[in-house]
Design a protein around this nucleic acid. Sequence first.
DNA 1: TCCACTTTTTACCTGTCTTTAACATTCGCT
DNA 2: AGCGAATGTTAAAGACAGGTAAAAAGTGGA
Lengths: 258, 258
Amino acid sequence: MGALNRTFPGADRPAQEKQAPEPVMNDKSKIFVVEDDTDISRLVRHHLEMAGYRVRSYSTTHGVLADALKERPALMLLDIMVPGGDGIDLCRQVRQSGQALGAIPIVFLTAKTSEADRIRGLETGADDYITKPFSPRELVARVKAVLRRCEAPLAPTVIRSGGLEIDALAMILTVRGAVITTTATEFRLLHYLAQHAGRVFTRDQILDAVWRETTFVSPRSVDVYVRKLRAKIEIDPEHPRYLRTVRGAGYRFEAPKK
Amino acid sequence: MGALNRTFPGADRPAQEKQAPEPVMNDKSKIFVVEDDTDISRLVRHHLEMAGYRVRSYSTTHGVLADALKERPALMLLDIMVPGGDGIDLCRQVRQSGQALGAIPIVFLTAKTSEADRIRGLETGADDYITKPFSPRELVARVKAVLRRCEAPLAPTVIRSGGLEIDALAMILTVRGAVITTTATEFRLLHYLAQHAGRVFTRDQILDAVWRETTFVSPRSVDVYVRKLRAKIEIDPEHPRYLRTVRGAGYRFEAPKK
DNA sequence: TCCACTTTTTACCTGTCTTTAACATTCGCT
DNA sequence: AGCGAATGTTAAAGACAGGTAAAAAGTGGA
């Protein structure tokens, strides 16, 4: 993905379409946290680090923008009220910083449940909004979710594999030339497995990745969806060649050899 | 709905890719539960056991820390209010116990929805927070999720050794160019031994590492699996060069020299 | 509201895997 | 060589994982 320069900046793009910052790759695991309450800051840092991110903390907005330009974090977590200019201002600055940072995902963090704040935050272009108190699980889940959402355009938008064409942006599945309709869950599942073709996932891992957070679903649901997908994509659903069962482990997507 | 509130019938603990045993190994399936309400305690125990965990219950915090140091559970579920010092204190002690236990995941359990408690709990370093009443499914799902998050995200690389290729991510075994199908247990066994090539393991050590903890299996089962593997990977199963028997001790994996 | 559709659970069925136990063989020792 | 212990081998019973279908539960629109 070494594309150097995409021709046009966000000019005619719909605002919400997260455009991958092509020119300079961000650091996929670095997260900036701007939060003045040191307890919360430590807490957040700890859990993000446990989840495998590298964290840089700030207690004011001072210097954040400059550092961000240099270090290109993957995401910013901003307390909506911090000394030295509040998070909303910072968010706005980031969004206006042009191509360099404009697309970076921003998540607000706040004790307030106030609708007004919430709306202001989202209007400035935040990607999500977490109100304190939050569980670490929720925090990490949402950070992951936002990153996942923003990652999609980075990955090739269309996965082509042995007669399948999975267009994630358009959510269109084409099987050997024919467009096949799928439900949202079916599509996400297929997309996820195909994206990591060759790797085995347990049902639990699949639930984590494909199902929405906060739902607690029996692992056997995965089986049901695999079956539905097989009916749609396999030449002979009795002898699946794309969606392989790995007995005792889970499922694996394979591109069948000719 | 005859089965009232069962979780998933004992079945579904997917054969998790048993990862390399890290320096200090906790007991991957043992959970401590500290809860004074015996009804809830029994309920929790029951559902965790159904999900394949071994549970040790306490009705006060007394002795918990000492036991934890000895038994190294994989996770602790603490009621936030228990007699004999509350769960938050215990959590803090655990977190301050240094390397030994400091990283152990802790999940709070509470009837309170009080914001204050919630924040206090999370600030002491809990990993999640479940408020009563909770559904058994949620309980199990969250415990699993926390454990999964804390697992070492070690990327098992492909092990290549004298004509064998053991790809743990894909769960594919290739022997001198040919893909060989294996059962999950066969694969885990081979993977484990190959990962620690050159070292002898007793049957009991192998059972501990490769079999799931909750089952009690005769050590001779190992012999049977070694035989199956030999049939699949050895050039001459009569004179094994990969899976060597160490009489009186156990087995050892070796990469045969050309 | 009803209807159509998606999601999720549940139960049953089948083929495969696991485990044990019995018997055979080999090894190390005296 | 002979003995006992450790390991190899085999087969069979039972457990279990996964496929499947159908019901139940949830959703959204007309």
